[in-house]
Amino acid sequence: MTTPAWDPAQYLRHSGHRLRPFTDLLARVPALPAERPRIADLGCGPGNATALLAERWPAGRITGYDNSPEMLERARAGQEGDRLDFAFADARTWTPEEPHDLILTNATLQWVPGHLDRFADWTAALKPGGAIALQVPDNTDAPLHALMRELAATPRWASRLADILRAPDSVHTPGAYLDRLARLGCATDVWQTTYQHVLTGEDPVLDWVKGTGLRPALTALADDPDARDAFVTEYRDLLRKAYPATPYGTVLPFRRLFAVAVKGA
């Protein structure tokens, strides 16, 4: 899987729908052990969700981490201060340098191969009573992704797009997250939610995925605009059949997986 180039403006076009899972995750995070908690938002993207952490814990010290310069530039615009800052980090290697009360990662770990193995380092850095909270899209079997992979594997595209997209096993079963975090001494709650997003506008499902899952293909074809546009057009036509428009919009069913793990004393 290639490292995609990110477009904050495209990502934020559906910010209302994308924020819903974050707020649902945040609602299940318990009281933290410190009055002035140390919090990390790993994979903060454009920082609009990170700002909600500052609202929830106004006395906290919060850092949003991302490996996209474009996302960090957008996140830093007008937001940084004494309590909230942003820094470069890669979730594949990031390890906290000080004790934390909360390590949160939202819609990021699906891009991190082997991410279950990161939990041991993160749990070790939690204070007793601290928490790991995560959310990942859990829909690689949905037409949104399956059609993209099938198209990329056709003779026209395989030489350029083979093995660059998210694999079907980029997210694990709910039981795998529960087992890994519980074995690390955490009281763990894992659940799934399927959202029925009603999207509007022309080809809204394509517009949605241009901000996320399609980014590796767009990045790989960036040096050949004609090929990029041809691939997007073929994929658009497949999406139109898989997600037909209705009089009230286009429905995008979207399943997500959540976990909140609280470290024991």
Rank of each mutant, 00 (worst) to 15 (best):
D141T: 13
G45F: 09
P174Y: 10
G81Y: 07
A261N: 12
T2I: 15
P253M: 07
P204D: 07
T200H: 13
D141E: 12
A142N: 15
D223F: 12
V209A: 13
R18W: 03
P113C: 07
A220T: 02
T105L: 12
A125Y: 14
A107H: 10
N139W: 07
P21T: 01
L26E: 04
A31I: 04
G60P: 06
P96L: 13
L239V: 03
Y235F: 14
A152W: 00
I103Y: 15
C186E: 09
T105I: 09
D141H: 13
I132W: 10
E35C: 09
L116K: 11
L257E: 08
Y195H: 10
T108G: 11
A182E: 07
T2D: 12
V262N: 01
R118Q: 15
A125H: 11
G175Y: 09
R215C: 11
E70F: 00
N67H: 15
E35Y: 06
P8W: 00
P128S: 01
G60N: 11
G64D: 14
A133Y: 00
L42K: 05
R36C: 12
R74L: 02
D189K: 04
A146F: 03
D24F: 03
F258A: 07
R18L: 04
A5W: 15
A133T: 04
G213R: 09
L25M: 06
T2Q: 14
F231R: 00
P204H: 08
E234K: 11
L109H: 04
D224I: 02
P244K: 01
P58S: 07
A230H: 05
T105F: 12
Y243H: 13
G64A: 10
L109G: 02
Q79W: 14
H14I: 01
E35V: 06
R160L: 15
W208K: 05
G129Q: 01
T2L: 14
V260W: 13
A31H: 02
P168Y: 11
D117V: 03
E202Q: 12
Q192D: 02
Y195G: 03
Q192T: 11
L144P: 09
P137T: 04
V190K: 08
L252D: 12
A107W: 04
T200K: 12
G264A: 12
A131I: 02
G175D: 14
A89R: 01
T95W: 08
R183G: 10
T50I: 08
H172F: 12
Y195A: 05
F86N: 09
L109N: 08
F119H: 05
L72T: 01
R149Q: 06
R18D: 02
L181K: 06
H115P: 11
G78W: 08
E80I: 14
N139I: 05
I132Q: 07
W191T: 00
V112S: 01
P69S: 07
R215I: 06
R28D: 04
V209S: 13
L12T: 05
F119W: 03
L239M: 10
A9D: 13
G43T: 08
P143S: 09
G16F: 03
A54E: 14
T93Q: 15
T246G: 12
F86K: 09
P244C: 03
A49M: 13
K263R: 15
G16E: 04
S159I: 09
H100G: 13
